[in-house]
Design a protein around this nucleic acid. Structure first.
Lengths: 251, 251
DNA sequence: CGCGGAATTGATGTGCATCAACTCGGGTGG
DNA sequence: CCACCCGAGTTGATGCACATCAATTCCGCG
């Protein structure tokens, strides 16, 4: 029995460096034994290729998903076409939109080959009741999602194109760093079109701004490959404190 | 004992027609006994007057709040002044932004005299563990908040001024109706400035659009008093299907 | 009654969308 | 293996929706 437990722990440590352990946000703050129990209810990893849907608007809600590798975009359809409402990197948790109505109200598609961990929500709810720390972590993740969306509201409501793109790049950089990847040298797996849709801007604007940032020595861009050369300046730009161009209008 | 329970139930039914029963989103789907237990952990009602803060950015997170009467606005500060990120009517639940960091990252202020029910989060977590239906309801409320913010992202990212204001009015109307109030005749307790900030538009634009809607017989407006005269047309406008003006650009 | 913030109304400016033309690169099939 | 093709990206010219500025008017409140 104790041996079984040991094996379980080992397997968690081993398997893809701890599918949940290494990659997901959820288990921060959980002890190893609790992670094992979480791992037990997780279904087999789902593998998606570029263009594959994880779920679509209207699909029945069954599970939450944790991105293990790859990048996915989340988008919703309005009458004027679709808009990207989020990009998700390894460690991000997906699917909360479906809890309320038992149906997803947005779609999720892989931008590159991606592996996701599927956690049936019904079983998660039961487990959360037994493991208070897990319950608390779920609340934290939900709270973080809400805070993140609120930040996007500020971005879309008050910031100009330059600030939006700067915030986007800095934010991406920080998230990559948190995953142990390079914060200043990375590939954009999403198209200019997706970025524009996400930031409420036209493709052409994204293109022009990237060129301008490059001229200003803030970054180097070559197709989908980005190198951030002056992160502090980019951060300042994003906060509207970059005195690069004309003085900031305040509404 | 049984008598105590009876008294408790009665008091719930009686007190402001069930402070929690009638007004809050949370107890939908709970049985009466569960509502009583929720009511037991709720602290005394907080009363705010116009301009009073419920909490401010940086305040320590302790509790969730349910609006019982009145209207409050939630806003966040960026470098370019502050932006309204939500209006909350009776029945709405507030404060989720604070769970993650144990600090609120936005401020909340009463727009008119308002009464709020305060539910200490730590005690709510404990109770949720014992009452599965309550736990599920909390997830549902959080999910609804996320869906609502995603909808705002679509609005700010893709819709023009006309559509934004139409969506805002229709949405307000629906929420009022759900609370048993008139969906077509109400007071705007928020200023034009607040509405503009929320919708990412200038005060002058709000003013001009309201006038235009009035000319088009969609509504009647006199200062803060609004009467919606043609809800279907307004709804259509909000969805971008209103062929009122020029054809819709799609990005 | 008179002050001050909120709202309206008009005139002007501009940031970014839109349209259009062109280039580039990568995948495919002959 | 190269020529072709097509979607993605870039670049330039133009227009417009909405911000901004400015001047009243309106109303609530002391």
């Amino acid at each position: 029995m104790s041996q079984l437990r040991v094996i379980a722990l080992e397997s968690v440590r081993a398997a893809c460096q701890g599918c949940l352990l290494a990659h997901c946000c959820l288990p921060e703050g959980l002890v190893l034994e609790e992670i094992v129990r979480l791992d037990e209810i997780a279904k087999r990893t789902r593998l998606l290729h570029r263009g594959d849907y994880l779920f679509q608007t209207g699909d029945r809600f069954r599970a939450l998903y944790i991105v293990k590798t790859g990048v996915v975009k989340r988008f919703a359809a309005s009458t004027a076409g679709e808009q990207v409402v989020g990009f998700h990197l390894p460690g991000d948790v997906l699917g909360f939109d479906g809890i309320n109505h038992q149906r997803h109200d947005c779609s999720t598609m892989a931008l590159e080959t991606a592996a996701l961990c599927e956690i049936p929500f019904a079983r998660l709810e039961v487990l959360a009741r037994e493991v208070p720390r897990l319950q608390h972590q779920i609340y934290c993740v939900l709270s973080r999602v809400i805070s993140g969306e609120t930040e996007m509201l500020l971005l879309l409501g008050k910031k100009n194109a330059e600030e939006r793109l700067a915030v986007f790049l800095v934010n991406l950089s920080q998230r990559l760093q948190r995953r142990g990847l390079s914060p200043s040298d990375f590939y954009l797996s999403m198209s200019r079109h997706d970025i524009g849709s996400y930031l409420g801007l036209a493709v052409e604007t994204i293109s022009r701004l990237l060129m301008r940032f490059q001229e200003d020595r803030l970054l180097r861009v070559e197709r989908k490959h980005i190198q951030l050369l002056n992160l502090p300046a980019l951060t300042a730009l994003g906060h509207g404190t970059g005195a690069t161009r004309r003085q900031q209008h305040q509404r």
